[in-house]
Design a protein around this nucleic acid. Structure first.
Ligand SMILES: [Zn+2]
Ligand SMILES: [Zn+2]
Length: 664
DNA sequence: GCTCAAGGCCAA
DNA sequence: TTGGCCTTGAGC
């Protein structure tokens, strides 16, 4: 899904080949990468500049509290980063885009603790066409677009910003809510605490996916058997010593579609102190019906026998949960299907282990990504060594794979090499965190990335397991802010005066200008893409004017349009509505890395509110797609990358205009 | 000193 | 490029 791209026939070939089949590979900006500076950590551990902070500050992926904000801003930033100067379009590789960037992670990927205020110069590629205009909007070749853009921006619809500042990834906050989210997500602590990211409300049983759907047997209850096909040293290293540990994962519904990095249960774990009994599986979870499952295929027989909970001992065959989100729709081989199913089941097992699962048991369960043997806790989830390595390489080397098969590839032990795009996507979906990758590549030590993702009220256990994650009625998470309904107009989101006033009301004109300068490209592209949701295969560059990929290629705009089509495809898939569209733009705009913001705090606070509003909205309006919020945020980096590519064509008015006038 | 997650190495 | 194994190093 994520990497799906509207491909033309010529782009398909050797689709079943191993590493080469899917691949396009372009360098990507993993906005979420934890770009830690090389700076040596003070011996004092967490103390830096007098500020007590987790050793490895994590980027946040979700919500920011005011406290976090203020704390974050006190953190001294090293500002060596943030520039995308290396980003450049290098042409097409196998009909694919290729975006090369500096070898070492360019700073745009750097996530600093504070948000906008420390933001560095905008990526050069953006600057080229957008900056240096002294408060004047950058030149836009698309005359018809500019007004719209400006209108929307000034109207309060935000826009987007730069790569290095994905709203999802950019903010690193040290969660002050210690009892809610311990500073370190490390399994270390997890072992001794409850992994309570979920809540009864998220249990598979009460999953928004509907009880009808399956995975009831996905082993939520389940248990893991130590009997796996492979063993590895990493896993063995945990062996035994942790048996007494008890992972109390709440049974979060973890069907792939529900999962998203930002919603990863793991991200929100470590809430032991604040969770009286969140880990208690929701009624039904762990019921005998959820006993272990045996799935076969490809000779990979995994036996998820129960280790805890009632009825796990049994291994039931023939249980084929209705995986509504089965991604292997395209698989033609039974084995593949089975393996895929197995992998999915595994995911549910490993990620949504029932309470009482020990670390060892988790280690013995299959990798949620491919089904292989879990070797440990890597980048936010328990995964096998190969997926760990794959994720690391992909992020470190900034690969950007694109699936040639509609992102429907199954990812199993035997197929994981075939489509890196789908594999990486799955890594993210399963909860691997970009920020866990260290830009400076320092070895050793502990990682403390965390995601202070505040679970929405609807996801909180009714038992009131955690006040910190109480419904919006709770002061701590209440959305005081103008939810987008107010900002954008409840019904006609884009026409409300409230909406129009958003930015102007909140920010000084100078800041507005700065934000616009930094986000104009993203806004433009986003507008085009959103507008093109109803016209698959073509991008409506302006009113009445569209361009297809073929036409774009003729004009040398293939890379840009291709990405836009891909992005649009995601918007379409996610059924992004106007409200969400507006919210995303606001988020993006307010995440701008304009370096000269006068009221950066305001900007961040506003963004936080927008994030909360969006989250609330998606949960309220799309309860059956709990991961929507996270997925929407995940699209933002793509938009940014698209913009990077787009900057080139946009800087070539003539060509762009030609394309623009190429009517459909 | 042990744990374990992150990065590095390197044969396949 | 993959993935198994090794090294590193902060926290305990
Ligand atoms: Zn794996
Ligand atoms: Zn694929």
């Amino acid at each position: 899904m994520m990497g799906s791209l509207t491909m033309t026939p010529i782009e398909r070939d050797n689709e079943d080949e191993g590493s080469g089949s899917d691949g396009e590979v372009s360098k990507i900006d993993f906005t979420g990468v934890n770009l830690r500076t090389k700076k040596k950590r003070g011996t004092g551990g967490n103390s830096r500049d007098g500020f007590e902070e987790p050793e490895r500050p994590m980027s946040w992926e979700g919500e920011l509290s005011d406290t976090e904000m203020s704390i974050a801003t006190t953190i001294k930033q090293d500002l060596e980063e943030t520039s995308m100067e290396g980003v450049q379009v290098c042409g097409v590789n196998n009909n694919h885009l290729r975006l090369d960037e500096d070898k070492p992670m360019p700073s745009p990927l750097r996530f600093t603790d504070s948000g906008v205020d420390h933001v560095q110069a905008k990526p050069s590629t953006h600057q080229v066409s957008s900056s240096n205009n002294g408060g004047v909007l950058p030149p836009m070749s698309s005359a018809s677009e500019l007004p719209l853009l400006v209108d929307k921006l000034l109207g309060g619809t935000g826009s987007y910003n730069t790569p290095s500042h994905s709203p999802v990834l950019q903010h690193r906050h040290h969660h002050p809510l210690k009892h809610a989210v311990p500073p370190t997500p490390s399994p270390d602590s997890a072992i001794h605490s409850a992994y309570s990211y979920g809540s009864p409300a998220q249990s598979p049983v009460t999953s928004r996916h509907g009880s009808s759907h399956g995975l009831p047997s996905s082993g939520f209850s389940s248990p893991y058997t130590p009997s796996l096909s492979r063993n590895n040293s990493d896993a063995s290293q945990y062996g035994g010593s942790q048996h007494s540990s008890c992972y109390s994962y709440s049974s979060v519904s973890v069907s792939p579609t529900q999962f998203s990095p930002t919603h990863s249960p793991i991200q929100s774990r470590h809430m032991h102190a604040g969770f009286p009994s969140p880990v208690v599986p929701p009624r039904g979870t762990g019921s005998p019906l959820h006993a272990g499952v045996v799935y076969g295929g490809m000779g990979v027989h995994r036996n998820l026998s129960g280790l805890t909970g009632p009825g796990e001992e049994g291994v039931q065959e023939g249980m084929t949960p209705d995986l509504s989100d089965d991604r292997e729709g395209g698989s033609s081989i039974l084995d593949d299907k089975m393996s895929s199913l197995a992998a999915d089941l595994v995911q549910h097992s490993a990620l949504a282990a029932p309470p009482g699962i020990s670390r060892q048991q988790l280690i013995n369960s299959p990798c949620p990504i491919c089904g292989d043997k879990i070797s440990g806790f890597h980048y936010g989830i328990f995964s096998c060594e190969s997926c760990k390595g794959f994720f690391k390489r992909t992020v470190q080397n900034r690969k950007n794979y694109v699936c040639l098969r509609g992102s429907l590839c199954s990812v199993t032990i035997s197929t994981r090499k075939k489509c890196p795009a789908c594999r990486f996507e799955k890594c993210l979906k399963m909860g691997m965190k970009l920020e866990a990758i260290r830009e400076d590549r320092t070895r050793g030590g502990r990682s403390t990335y965390q995601c202070s993702y505040t679970l929405p009220a609807s996801l909180v256990a009714p038992s009131g397991s955690d006040k910190m994650f109480a419904p919006s009625g709770d002061p701590q998470v209440k959305l005081e802010a103008p939810d987008l309904g107010a900002m954008a107009g409840s019904s006609s989101h884009l026409n409300s005066r409230h909406h129009e006033k958003l930015v102007p009301q909140l920010l000084q004109i100078d800041d507005q200008i700065s934000l616009l300068i930094n986000a104009w490209c993203e806004l433009l592209l986003f507008s085009c893409c959103f507008r093109s949701m109803s016209t698959p295969g073509e991008i409506r560059v302006s009113l009445g004017k569209s361009i297809t990929l073929a036409q774009a290629r003729e004009l040398g705009l293939g890379a840009c349009i291709e990405r836009m089509l891909n992005f649009t495809e995601h918007l379409r898939r996610l059924k992004v509505d106007k409200y969400e569209y507006v919210a995303m733009k606001v988020i993006v705009l307010l995440t701008s890395d304009a370096s000269d913001l006068r009221e950066s705090e305001k900007v961040r606070a506003s963004q936080e509110k927008a994030l909360e509003a969006l989250q609330q909205y998606t949960l309220t309006h799309y309860p059956d797609i709990p991961s929507k919020f996270g997925e929407l945020l995940l699209r933002i980096p793509e938009l940014q990358r698209t913009c990077q590519v787009a900057n080139v064509p946009l800087s070539m008015p003539s060509e762009y205009n030609r394309a623009k006038h190429s009517e459909k």
